[in-house]
Design a binder for these strands. Sequence first.
DNA 1: CCCGTTCAGCAACGATTGTTTCAAGAATGG
DNA 2: CCATTCTTGAAACAATCGTTGCTGAACGGG
Lengths: 297, 297
Amino acid sequence: MPEAPLQDRLLATFDTLPPRLRAAARWVLDHPDDVALLSMRGQAQRAGVPPVTLTRLAQRLGYDGYDEVRDLYAQAVRRRAIGFADRGGALVARGKAEGEGRLLADILAASGASLQRLAEEDVLAQIRTAARILGGARRIYAVGQRSSFSIAFHFSYVAAFVGADCHLLEGAGGTGADALRGARPGDALLAVSVKPYVRTTLELARHAAGRGLDVVAITDSAAAPLARSAGCAIIVPTESPSFFHTMLPAFAVAELLVALFATRRGEQALIAITATESELAALDVYALGSEGRRITP
Amino acid sequence: MPEAPLQDRLLATFDTLPPRLRAAARWVLDHPDDVALLSMRGQAQRAGVPPVTLTRLAQRLGYDGYDEVRDLYAQAVRRRAIGFADRGGALVARGKAEGEGRLLADILAASGASLQRLAEEDVLAQIRTAARILGGARRIYAVGQRSSFSIAFHFSYVAAFVGADCHLLEGAGGTGADALRGARPGDALLAVSVKPYVRTTLELARHAAGRGLDVVAITDSAAAPLARSAGCAIIVPTESPSFFHTMLPAFAVAELLVALFATRRGEQALIAITATESELAALDVYALGSEGRRITP
DNA sequence: CCCGTTCAGCAACGATTGTTTCAAGAATGG
DNA sequence: CCATTCTTGAAACAATCGTTGCTGAACGGG
């Protein structure tokens, strides 16, 4: 069983505990999951002690009551779901800060956690599937509106940079749908949409699917409209301590997709990049062209 | 998001559910861990529905009560715990992973680290200064090109959502600079630019500074052209294990800026948001307007 | 030996849980 | 149009929760 929040503390005091409390502590050490999932009375029964004993154990450890202990273990379960060892730094910083600093620290900590959630098996699997679909497509269309637009744009821009035949469907004036006119099976559509779902994005995705395109979705829930109609859906968290949703994980997914995409194209991608770069340099787009720089869109 | 016991069943009945039940189902789908760890009332609150609704949802799925549903999710948590114990966790898996999986894990880890760097004192201080400047400005202009465009766009979009008088300077056709014609002292410019620095962005920033605007820069080095000319420069890391630069930290900064900005505006921001929302709703921009949703750009 | 302290468990407490009931509103079909 | 069904939330419900107060037992130092 993985990390147990109070393990060290319990072991330290273990020898000084009276027999029944020790039995309780022992059970807690052995069943961290149950601490989070069962009621205190249920745990007491399984541990073979009266409920009071657990309360007393919690108090002896310096907590007000057993609820605090259970919260601790619940957090551990959540963290394990995410799969990262807790990095003290950010959490400590959060605790000390106040006001604006507190908000900033909270948001950053939450952002980090959100990104970690992308590292879960099933999400990664979806990302890889998506990269495979996009990589195999003859042409890629990308669509996203309002808060999702920046995601679609970024993907489209970088994908084009590595030589993909990628078209961004801008929603304005309905011209977006027009670009789809030449689309045919073998093409793919990357659609980005989070709550509240913009109608035209959904319709475009439906339309594309109807024409036989592979639809890859970046959205915020398995129950989201896009997730249900798309061939491959990548679910990103959007909750944030601020009172906005965050698009950061979606942005990260976009970058991940291009990275994989580029890897799949390999040599071909490098050629495309250098070609684009020299073209742009010739057009004098960039300042300070002399400085040594990496391949960069 | 880890395995969800009822996912299939919920998705199957999802469309036939009445609105509030659907909202509940949706929350359950999106927060499987919380189903196991929180009390029903706590879950109801987070889902934005009265407690009864969860009971009804359980009954509609054929269970006697919500407790059975929670037991199901608790079992899933335990099962996952076992799985992790066997395989030794995601971190080990990362080490073992190869090829694509390895790349994804590396990028995500690096992204997390990059975000942590934003939490450093001096960066935070710059962010706060920037928020103060932008918050005090009469009007905000935003500019960013190529890979920086998505950052500028996102900032501009969300800032406008909270009621800021924010204009995005699009580079195409030189019309971007035109929008600056009405600019005067008291206005501010948010300029985003990373290597290789697009010439026009730099020129625009210089131009704006010349007209007496406060210039806030998001860039990638203290030695970058923008950093040296701007009144306030936020330095973001752009290194990445992939062979592209990453714009993720810059994106995070954009979101942080708006969050702070909105906080400063307080009540005023909320009013602006609800006004915009109802306007958009009236225009029928969004699908599924009925579902309870948060303030969302 | 007695006395004070610590430990353990029972019973009862208020708080909170999940559920049922009921009435009002919305949607639907005739 | 009315009648009917379905949907929804407030309030009240018993059950269960975690905790407290209390009592007796066990133990150790005087």
